[in-house]
Write a protein that binds this DNA or RNA. Structure first.
Lengths: 338, 338
DNA sequence: TTGAAAGCGCTAACAT
DNA sequence: ATGTTAGCGCTTTCAA
């Protein structure tokens, strides 16, 4: 049996092609009995609408593109899962498109994706969310897109973010509450503005608690485990060693923990460590890592929702959403040694 | 400027539509000068072929589907990366399709994906590679697909795998060489046959070295960190504690390491631990984990290559590839205490 | 509430 | 080496 087309269904149901189309697309203005008749024909023939014919005629692909540049594996997976949840409910598919933010062809590549009609819209994750050039190009080309955790140009285009700066503030306050006065901080990769901004929360918390900001306790990391370990080497070699270290992400915090182990430093008795992101390593490490969980999947699901709204032309008034982080206290933090 | 079509390009270049099509698709039998003329017109108009028109006319989507059911995040990311490498070289896109292997609609869903023309072929990862029902349905429906690390029906359809059973054998031999006589083993999730089969390597190595297989040293895990920790509780509570534990994957091995830490067991002095997969946690943990690395991305790239060959009708004789694992010795294993 | 006709922009098959 | 002719299977007008 060759695969059935819309004409076959129409013939079998004794209606026009257009009526079948209406039933398939759940459009209104079809009598119940007609709908049933058509549905029966669809079932009998096991009819599946051709995606490409639909796309060509309707001039949309029913596919969304997910753009990312090398965030952590667990982040990408969570984003994909969340995005797919909403996509599937709406009959959309998800095309993944990892890319290099410094590639010369990046812009052409991304614009091509849309102009070729491969995708109807885009989701941007950090650090791409903050590539002004890319954002501007998308706006100029009138391409629908939503950004996750952007830090800039928020007035211009829809986005979804968390209150993670506030969470960094809270985490720092918690460490202070535990008696820590010398708290080391590891800043994130300069290109990942969403991550580096966590530093502001740390600074604000120190200020709020009348602690001086000691620049020798603040070091620049690059989001990787190895860079975290390098930073730990610096911090743990100081004559006056910090009693706690707060890293801007879990991978770097894991680097701190490993370096501390190698120096025979007992955690949390002699050193408290906190991270950010709640990646898998956070609970697979010893001691398990106190960290902050962002609702990544939910954010991505929300982003897709906003994007689909845009595609339907229902341009939302303030197309943005802010979601909440949660601090998870585990074994790696504790009261400062008296 | 409205977007250019193939007719616009043909008109500007002063050739027929078909010639433009030939240039775009890099078909042979076009004179160099003609090709240049057409290319110039394409550049001038910034012409991008419509994906949906191509798909409809050619009856192929130029998209491949990646099916998976909940393997680890790092595994999925590696597979995606590898698959995309080959896809992009060939002008294909990748659609991701996570699914539940016990979902009633799984088959209909997957078949629908192909029958709707959303994808031209599929890549299956474990444990889906070993779902006989799914594999059979794909074969019956004459859908092109390639499996990663299948353990069954290998005569029937193309696949890519590694010599991981051999690697498990080698790893066990290495532990024995280090003086270990009592080696605990944690079996993988029963549904993941590719993982459970590593047990065979362990058994073979014991036999080869004239060690008796002590069933109390073999416990059933479920691939997760938590299950690994549970298994470790069992093994480390034995009156005659193993001096080494080999887990069928890294997540479970991480569970062993954490449980050992909590019991004050020093590694590797008092306990050696080995894992499998070289996931990120393997080097983010203390002590860093001795494990086996499979070339996941390369396997996926190869799988796509085989799939594309199938799509081009060049049915390869024995469409299968076997790739090599590598043992990585890190800090978690050492000589047995005298 | 339903239908008829006209493409969407390409590729395939067959000329030339 | 290049061109001509037909569709691919839908959605979108517009009409009834």
């Amino acid at each position: 049996m060759a695969k059935a087309t819309i004409d076959d269904v129409a013939a079998l149901a004794g209606v026009s092609m257009k009526t079948v189309s209406r039933v398939v697309n759940k459009e209104p203005n079809v009598r119940g009995s007609t709908r049933d008749k058509v549905q029966a024909a669809i079932d009998e023939l096991d009819y599946r609408p051709s995606q490409s014919a639909r796309s060509l005629a309707a001039n949309r692909s029913y596919v969304l593109g997910l753009l990312y540049d090398n965030p952590s594996a667990s982040y990408v997976i969570d984003v994909q899962d969340g995005a797919l949840t909403t996509c599937r409910r709406s009959g959309y598919d998800l095309l993944i498109h990892p890319c290099k933010r410094d590639a010369a062809e990046l812009l052409a590549e991304v614009l091509g994706l849309v102009r070729q009609g491969r995708v109807d819209g885009l989701i941007l994750t950090p650090p791409l969310s903050d590539m002004a050039e890319l954002v501007q190009a998308l706006v100029n080309a009138d391409i629908p897109f939503v950004r996750l955790s952007p830090t800039e140009h928020k007035e211009a285009c829809p986005y979804v973010q968390t209150n993670d700066q506030e969470a960094a503030y809270d985490m720092t306050c918690r460490l202070i509450e535990l008696g820590h006065q010398h708290i080391g901080f590891i800043i994130g990769h300069p290109d990942h503005r969403a991550v580096t901004q966590r530093y502001a929360g740390y600074v604000a918390a120190l200020k709020e608690n009348d602690l001086t900001l000691d620049k020798s306790l603040v070091v620049q990391g690059y989001n990787s485990f190895d860079s975290g370990r390098d930073c730990a080497r610096q911090l743990l070699s100081l004559s006056e060693r910090p009693s706690a270290i707060f890293a801007s992400n879990d991978d770097m915090a894991a680097g701190v923990i490993i370096e501390a182990h190698h120096r025979g430093i007992v955690m949390p008795a002699e050193l408290s460590v906190a991270g950010f992101d709640d990646t898998p390593v956070a609970h697979q490490i010893y001691p398990s890592l106190t960290t902050v969980r962002q609702p990544i999947a939910e954010m991505a699901a929300k982003a897709v929702e906003l994007l689909l709204k845009q595609l339907k032309g229902k341009s939302v008034q303030m197309p943005a959403a802010i979601m909440s982080c949660r601090i998870l206290e585990r074994e790696s933090t504790g009261k400062v040694k008296p």
